[in-house]
Design a binder for these strands. Structure first.
Lengths: 195, 195, 195, 195
DNA sequence: TATGAATGAGAGTTCATTCAT
DNA sequence: GATGAATGAACTCTCATTCAT
C-alpha cells in the first residue's frame, strides 16, 4: 500500500467522522482540515473536491458492504438463516464503517439525484431486491408471516437495522454480533410476550 | 386568526417541505422564497431568520405531538395498550406533519447542541422517559419480554416508528392507522411464523 | 430601458476598462467591484460570473461591430471604397468600444477554445471572409496589387487597424475618422515617397 | 556550457511556449511543469519564481534583439535601408523567439509598471527613439512621406511588424526574409495599385 | 407586503511557493 | 535534481440578511 493511499484513507476517515457528526452540507472543508491537523487548501493535494471525498467514503463503504452481502448470498441458506446472516453482516459493517453508514442514511436520498451519485440509487434497488426477495421466499416456505405487506416488512427490517448507525458507538458494551442477535430476536419474534 | 398568521403558516409549510426535501443546511432562503413565489428578502418581513423558521416548524410539531401523547398517557391504559396508542398517535403525527418529522429526524441531533434548540434535547429526554417507562412497566407485568435489553428495545421501537417519515407519503394506499396496525403487529409479534 | 439594464451596462463598462487594463485572468472580481464602488459579492446580483461579464462585453461589442460592417457591405461599394469604409467603421468602433476591442485583441485566441466563446472563432471566420473577399475582388479589378500574398495582406490590414485599440485613447487629438484617413493613406499608398 | 545552463534553457523554452499560448497570468506553474515532464515544485530548483522565468525569457529576447538592431544601426545605412534592415531583423527575431515576442506583445504594457520589469519601459523608449528617429531622418531626406503624423507612422510600422508574432509559425511556407520583403513592400509602397 | 440592490462573512478552491527526503 | 506533501494567501462565488422604496 503506497504511502499516499494510507494518507488518503486516514483523511477520509477524518472526513467521514466530521460529515457524520455535522452533516455533509453543514461541514466545511476547513473543519475537516482542522480535524486532520492541516490547512484547508492542503486537502486538495489529496482530493479533487469536498464532493469527491464524500464519493470515496460512500462508494468505499458500499463496495465492502456488497462484498459481505455477496458472501452471505453465495452460501445459499434458507430464507430465515439468510436474513439472520444479512442482519449480522449489516451490524458488522456498521461497526466498521459507522460514519459512512450514518452519512449514507442521512444523505443518500438527496445525493442520488446527483448524476455522480447515481450508484446510490442503484444500490438502493439492489438492496431492495436482495432483502425483499429473501423475505418473499421466506413467506413462501412459511418461515415468515404471510399476513404482512411485504414492502412494509422490508422497510421495517431495513430501517430498523441501519438506523442503529445513528446511535451505535464502536467499542461499546455490546459487540455487533450481540446487538444483531437481540435485534433479530425482536424482529423475528416481537417484543411482546407470546401467549 | 389574523391574515398574517395564515400567511406565516403557509410559508412555514412551504419551508418545511423544502427543508425536508433538501436538508436544512443545504436549503437556501432563496429556494424557500422561490417555492413560495416571492423574493428571498421578502421572507424577512415574516420571519426573523432562516433559523427561526426551523424553530417554529419544529416547536409547532412538538407541541402538537405532546398534546397527542399526553392525551394517550392521561387515559392511563395498560402498558401494551399504551404502546399501541402511542404508536398509532405517532403515525397520525407523521401523517399530519410529515415534513416536520423528517426534519426532526435528520437534524435534531446536531441542533440540540444549539442553545436555541435545547428543547429538542428536553423532548428527547421526555420521549425516552415516556416510552422506556412504559416498556419497563410492560416488562414488569409480563406484557413484554424480560430477556431483552430495555434501552435497545426502546431504540428499536422509537426508530422503527419515526424512520417511517422518510418514506411515508400522505394520501398513499395505507392510512396511518393501518400502517400503525401492521407496524405494531411486527413489533409486538415479530415477522417470523411463531412455532 | 429598465433600471437594471442601465446598471448592468454601467458595471460592464467598468469591468471592460479593468479587463482591458490588466488582462482578464489578472483581473480580480474585487478590482472590478472596487472600481464600481461596491463589494465583490454584490456583482453577483447582476452577473452570474466573471466569465459572463466578459461574455457580455465581447458579444455586445461584436453585435454592434457587425451591425456597422453590414451597413457598409450593404452599400455594395467598389472594393477600394469598401475597404476604406470598413477601416473607418473599425476606427469608429474602436472609439466607442475601446476596452472591448482591446480585450478582444488580447484574449480572443485563447477564449475561442472555450465552447462558451465559440462565437469568437465564428466571428474570426466571418471577418476573414469579409476582408479577404473584398481584397481579392480588389485585386481582380486592379484596385489592389496582385503581387502580394492575399492572406498576408489580409493579416496586415486587419492587425494594423485593430492593434490601434492598444494605444488609442478616446478624446485624443485625432478623431477616429482622421486616424482612419491617415491609416488608409499608409496602407493604400505606403509610407515611402513614391518615385 | 554547464549542464544546468542547458536544462534552464530547455525549461525556459517550454515555459515561453506555455506563456505565449495561455498568457502569463492564466498559466500555472503546474502547466509548465507538466509540459516539462516534472512536478511543479521541481521547477523551483532551477528558478526562483514564475516571475523570474518570465523575466529571463523577456530579457534574453531583448538582449538578442538589441544585438541585432545595434548591428544594423552600426552599419549606418540610409534611412530607408535602415528601416528595411530593422524590419528584416525583426522578422528574424520573431522566427527565433516567437514565443518570447508573443509574450512581449501581450504582457509588456502591464509588466512595465512593475519595478522588476522597468527595463521593458526602457526598451520601449529606446525602440521609439530608434524607429521614430530613423523615420524622421527619412522624411528629412525625402525618403518617407512628410504628410503623415510621425508618431502615427511609427506605431503603424512597429505594430505591423510585431503583431505578426501572434500568427507566425516557424517552419511555415514563407521564410522570415520573405515575409519581411512582402511586409516592407506593403508598408513602403502600399497595397493599392499606384496610378 | 413585497422588491431590488446591496452587504459582509465565509464557503470551496486554486496556486505560487517551500522543504524534508 | 526531483518528489510528495504541505502552506498561506488570495480567488471566485454563495448566501443569510438588511433596507430604502
Amino acid at each position: 500500500m503506497s504511502p499516499s493511499t494510507t494518507r488518503r484513507a486516514e483523511l477520509l476517515a477524518v472526513a467521514a467522522d466530521v460529515f457524520a457528526e455535522q452533516g455533509y452540507s453543514a461541514t466545511t472543508v476547513r473543519q475537516i482540515a482542522d480535524a486532520a491537523g492541516m490547512l484547508a487548501g492542503s486537502l486538495y493535494y489529496h482530493f479533487d473536491s469536498k464532493e469527491s471525498m464524500l464519493d470515496e467514503i460512500l462508494s468505499g463503504f458500499l463496495d465492502e458492504l456488497w462484498a459481505g452481502y455477496d458472501a452471505v448470498l453465495e452460501a445459499d441458506l434458507a430464507p430465515r438463516a439468510t436474513i439472520e446472516a444479512l442482519v449480522t453482516e449489516s451490524f458488522r459493517e456498521i461497526d466498521r464503517h459507522r460514519a459512512a453508514v450514518a452519512i449514507y442514511q442521512k444523505e443518500s436520498r438527496q445525493l442520488s439525484a446527483h448524476p455522480r451519485f447515481a450508484y446510490l440509487a442503484a444500490a438502493q434497488e439492489k438492496f431492495e431486491k436482495t432483502w425483499l426477495g429473501t423475505l418473499e421466499r421466506g413467506v413462501a416456505v412459511h418461515a415468515f408471516r404471510a399476513d404482512l405487506d411485504a414492502r412494509l416488512t422490508y422497510r421495517f427490517v431495513r430501517d430498523t437495522v441501519w438506523v442503529a448507525a445513528s446511535w451505535y458507538r464502536p467499542g461499546g458494551q455490546h459487540s455487533p454480533e450481540e446487538i444483531a442477535r437481540q435485534y433479530l430476536s425482536m424482529v423475528l419474534d416481537g417484543i411482546a410476550v407470546q401467549t
